[in-house]
C-alpha cells in the first residue's frame, strides 16, 4: 500500500498520543523498578541557609566590618580591586539596606542609609573604587553610627519595651 506524506502524517496524528502514553508507561516501569531510594536521610532540610563568613550580626557589627575594611584599603591603596577585601566591602555595602531594615529604625531613618548604600553600589559599578567612593563609605559609616544612637534612644523609651503579641 502506498502512503503519501499526508497519509504518514495522519497516521502519526492517530498514533502519537498512544505512542507517547506507551513510552511514558515504559519509563515509569523501568525507572520504578529500580531499588529503594536512600532512606537514611530523615529530612531534606538538614542544611540550613548558607551564610557568608563576613555576614554582619547587626548594625554595629556592620559598621565595624565596613570601617575595618576601609582602614585596610586606605593603608594599602595598591591592593588589586579583584582582591577578597574589595569583594567583601561590596557585599557589606549591598547588605546594608537589609541589615538596617531589620532593626527598629523608622522608614525616614532607614531611607538615607539605603540611598547612601545604593549610591556607593552605582559608583563602584561605574568608576570602580576611587577616593570619592571610599569617602562615601566613610559617610555611610557615620550614618550607621547615628542610626545606632537612634536605636539606643528607642530602647530607652517605654514603647520599645512592649513585645508584640500573636493576635489577629
Amino acid at each position: 500500500m502506498m502512503l503519501n506524506a499526508n497519509g504518514i502524517q495522519r497516521a502519526f496524528r492517530l498514533t502519537i498520543p498512544k505512542v507517547w502514553m506507551g513510552c511514558l508507561a515504559a519509563v515509569v516501569l523501568l525507572v520504578g523498578c529500580q531499588g529503594e531510594g536512600d532512606s537514611s536521610k530523615k529530612t531534606l532540610f538538614d542544611d540550613e541557609h548558607e551564610l557568608a563568613a563576613h555576614w554582619p550580626e547587626g548594625l554595629a557589627d556592620l559598621r565595624l566590618k565596613l570601617q575595618t575594611r576601609l582602614e585596610q584599603l586606605v593603608a594599602q591603596p595598591e591592593r588589586s580591586e579583584d582582591s577578597q577585601l574589595y569583594a567583601e566591602l561590596v557585599d557589606l555595602v549591598a547588605w546594608t539596606p537589609e541589615i538596617a531594615a531589620d532593626t527598629d529604625l523608622t522608614e525616614s531613618q532607614w531611607l538615607p542609609i539605603r540611598n547612601a548604600a545604593e549610591a556607593i553600589r552605582k559608583s563602584v559599578q561605574g568608576a570602580g573604587w576611587t577616593d570619592s567612593t571610599k569617602d562615601q563609605v566613610a559617610e555611610l559609616c557615620k550614618l550607621l553610627e547615628q542610626a545606632e544612637q537612634q536605636l539606643a534612644g528607642l530602647k530607652q523609651s517605654p514603647e520599645a519595651a512592649v513585645e508584640p503579641e500573636v493576635t489577629s
Binding site: V28, L29, V31, G32, Q34, G37, D38
Partner: peptide, 12 residues
C-alpha cells in the same frame, strides 16, 4: 536515587 515505582506513579 530515583523514586520507586509506586512512589513515582502515585506522586505523578
Amino acid at each position: 536515587s530515583f523514586p520507586t515505582l509506586d512512589v513515582g506513579v502515585v506522586g505523578g
